[in-house]
Design a protein around this nucleic acid. Structure first.
Ligand SMILES: [Zn+2]
Ligand SMILES: [Zn+2]
Length: 722
DNA sequence: AGCACGCCGACT
DNA sequence: GTCGGCGTGCTC
């Protein structure tokens, strides 16, 4: 047999099939060791065939097969080809996505335990009491864990029996199973009519992709779990994707309770051994449900019946390293390949997704009511312009202060949410709410303190700093947001008695730290939690009855075409933290721009109103989903090299632009808005294209101009343009 | 990517 | 004379 092999070297020069003579044990999908150049390389068998066109005398033999079964399924191989073609990257790089990283350099090994197996009776001296009882015990049980047997009867006795051949010691593979002891209570609740209709609709539909749009607490999770269970009953497997931050012990215990050890967890926090074993359990079919963040979409399960993408709108589903795959695209491929269902769920779907659902490309299921018919928390807006005029310069409106007093007096908990993200800031007039925008793009400008200018991230235009508001002439221009530290300080002045916890990126080290704070808060060790983005998700706090959103505008005026959408999603999500148990929750939303359409829709939970408004805006301004923003990023530690590389990619792209002008809404090369990150100088070619027909050629240009010490990559609708 | 081969400068 | 710089070419 001849094997077509891709060597595990991620470089375009060797990104092609190399042929080897293969023995009987080699199969498609096997990981193999092959002689390559003057050494040995790891490789993946993509295909087996009878004959080769390569000259027989130069054909070499495969040295060995690494694993006992092929690590890659036929589906993986096809998917790998498709991803490599789509993103124009070496196949070796794609193939690595399918294996736990630690598995490649041979660092992880299987873990075995010894088991004693009964063979035969044997002569024992009259004094060998321990041996006799051990022998009787093992004769009765057939086989027993070696370590446990030793504990019972003593190691000497057990070893003596093994020596005499009465028992045999066998190696048995054991899985290092993470969260082994996580067991949860699971009360099987009957589905509501709305839930039932959704499940039945999805199962009966001939569509592949389905969107479940349900408010917080409408029972989306039970829909997912019911569908997954159905698939398991049909002998199929399932993948359950959640945002990294939602992968909490609570959510795992919920799954464990329902599915036991058919669930395997793919989580960056696992040890190398655990990752390997969970992966192996999925590959062998011992586990049928893969749960995890983005990378779990590559789970080695066969015959996938359902792939669930929870919180579909979450930004963490886009890969940030090459290949910059879209989790949705991969999931869709796998669902289609297996004739399975792809279920997207969200309380606030992305505009892209909801549009496709409305156009009938996806199945659409609406769950507008909470399961127990409990009302959603009431959201009231506080106009911060009036507060400033009244001379209130604290971060808290009178309304919020009152509610806080009330909340604390009743012995409930409150969350104060600071809407800060990244370092970039927009300019807001604190007197009238004016926001500085680009004249050409209608996106907010971003203040760059290093150059002391305002920049548009979508066209690179730069504007003079403003000293007074062009609308009202006021001089209270806000360039930077308030930090959590300042908020806590002010809070202590007003509520000296209150116990306050603070959580943000700067002060909280790592996931562990976040976890501890959230745990402390849920155990009521504090009355008020002040935090940024990360408190928006996960965690249920039953005694929280008040949420204050201190600066709703901050993300609204972010230099990003999605800032409106993001703000809507964020407000809805944060509001959902309030009043999860018996008592009704309240939300105070502070803003300098109370008439803003995003906020108006958000306070009434009017997703459809928001969507219609937003989608017509995107259409009018030709932003996604009615166009695609593509950025080719070129970065290097040496500015000269980056510039040279930029020129090299720019020319062919420019040619593409010149000969397809009608397909480009924008095209230019420029410095990146933040020109240096992590010691690397960054330049970019920024494009806005009307359709995707030129996308492959853009990727081609970027891939063709890779050079040493320079990183070149393509981003589609990047999450931020810094 | 990694590694050998190969062809010119300054060193004991 | 020869040690070593890294440009070029190849890997079934
Ligand atoms: Zn103003
Ligand atoms: Zn602009």
């Amino acid at each position: 047999m001849i094997a077509e092999v891709i060597v595990d070297i991620a470089h375009s020069e060797v990104d092609k099939i190399f042929e080897y003579r293969a023995g009987e044990n080699v199969r498609a999908g096997s990981r193999v060791k092959v002689p390559f150049s003057r050494g040995v390389a790891d490789g993946y068998v993509m295909r087996l065939k009878e004959t080769s066109d390569f000259s027989a005398d130069r054909l070499k033999n495969i040295l060995s097969v690494v694993d006992e079964i092929p690590v890659l399924t036929e589906e993986c191989l096809q998917l790998a080809y498709s991803i490599a073609e789509r993103y124009k990257c070496p196949k070796a790089l794609v193939l690595r996505l399918f294996l736990p990283a630690e598995m490649r350099k041979g660092g992880v090994r299987e873990l075995y335990k010894s088991v004693a197996v009964y063979r035969k009776d044997c002569e024992l001296s009259a004094r060998a009491n321990k041996q006799l009882s051990a022998l009787e015990f093992i004769r009765e049980n057939g086989r027993f864990d070696y370590t446990a047997l030793c504990e019972k009867f003593g190691r000497a006795a057990v070893n003596a029996l093994a020596e005499k051949g009465a028992i045999a010691l066998e190696k048995q593979r054991v899985a290092r199973s993470p969260y082994k002891d996580v067991e949860g209570e699971h009360e099987e609740r009957a589905l509501t009519d709305a839930q039932k209709k959704t499940v039945e609709g999805i199962l009966a539909s001939n569509k592949t992709v389905h969107l479940v749009h349900g408010v917080t607490g409408s029972g989306k999770t039970e829909i997912y779990l019911t569908l997954i269970k159905k698939m398991l009953e049909e002998g199929k497997s399932a993948i359950f994707l959640v945002p990294e931050i939602s992968l909490t012990p609570q959510m795992l215990s919920q799954l464990r309770a329902k599915f036991g050890h058919s669930v395997a967890i793919i989580h960056s926090g696992l040890s190398a051994g655990e990752k390997f074993d969970e992966w192996w359990r999925l590959r062998t079919g011992e586990a049928k449900i893969a749960v995890g963040a983005r990378s779990a979409v590559f789970a080695p399960v066969e015959n996938v019946g359902a792939i669930v993408v929870d919180e579909e709108h979450d930004g963490s589903y886009a890969s940030e390293t090459n290949p910059r795959y879209s989790t949705f695209e991969i999931a869709k491929f796998r669902a289609e390949y297996n004739g399975g269902k792809l279920i997207l769920g969200s309380a606030t779907p992305s505009v892209e997704t909801y549009l496709q659902a409305k156009e009938g490309k996806f199945g659409l299921y609406e769950l507008p009511d909470r399961i127990n018919a409990r009302p959603l928390p009431e959201i009231v807006t506080a106009d911060m312009r009036k507060e400033v005029r009244r001379g209130n310069n604290t971060p808290f409106s009178a309304a919020l202060r009152e509610e806080l007093e009330d909340c604390l007096a009743k012995g409930n908990q409150a969350i104060l949410f600071l809407n800060r993200r990244g370092f970039a800031q927009s300019v807001i007039c604190r007197d009238c709410g004016y926001v500085a925008k680009c004249e050409a793009c209608d996106v907010s400008l971003t203040y760059h303190s290093d150059e002391n200018v305002l920049k548009c991230h979508y066209c690179g235009a730069s504007y003079h700093m403003l000293s007074a508001c062009p609308e009202c002439g006021g001089v209270h221009l806000n360039y930077t947001g308030t930090g959590t530290q300042k908020v806590v300080g002010e809070l202590k002045k007003i509520f000296p008695e209150a116990r306050i916890l603070r959580m943000d990126n700067d002060t909280t080290a790592g996931k562990e730290g976040h976890f501890k704070i959230l745990k402390a808060f849920s155990e009521r060790q504090a009355d008020i939690l002040v935090g940024t983005q990360m408190i928006a998700k996960g965690h249920d706090f039953p005694s929280v009855t008040l949420v204050g959103i201190l600066d709703a505008d901050m993300s609204l005026h972010f230099s990003d075409y999605r800032s409106g959408e993001r703000t809507y999603q964020l407000i809805t999500q944060v509001a959902g933290r309030s009043g999860r148990a018996r008592e009704k929750g309240k939300v105070v939303l502070q803003t300098f721009d109370p008439e803003n359409y995003i906020l108006r829709y958000a306070v009434t939970y009017d997703y459809k109103g928001f969507f219609e408004h937003e989608v017509s805006l995107r259409k009018a301004t030709a932003f996604p989903p009615f166009a695609k923003i593509v950025r080719v990023m070129v970065s290097s530690e040496e500015e000269k090299k980056a510039l040279e590389a930029l020129k090299e990619v720019y020319f062919p792209l420019k040619e593409l632009f010149e000969s397809n002008r009608e397909k480009f809404l924008f095209f230019n090369k420029m410095k990146a808005p933040i020109k240096r990150i992590q010691n690397k100088f960054r330049f970019q070619v920024l494009m806005r294209i009307a359709d995707e027909s030129l996308l492959p050629q853009i990727y081609e240009c970027a891939a063709a101009h890779k050079r040493k010490d320079v990183l070149v990559y393509v981003e589609e609708n990047p999450a931020n343009l810094s």
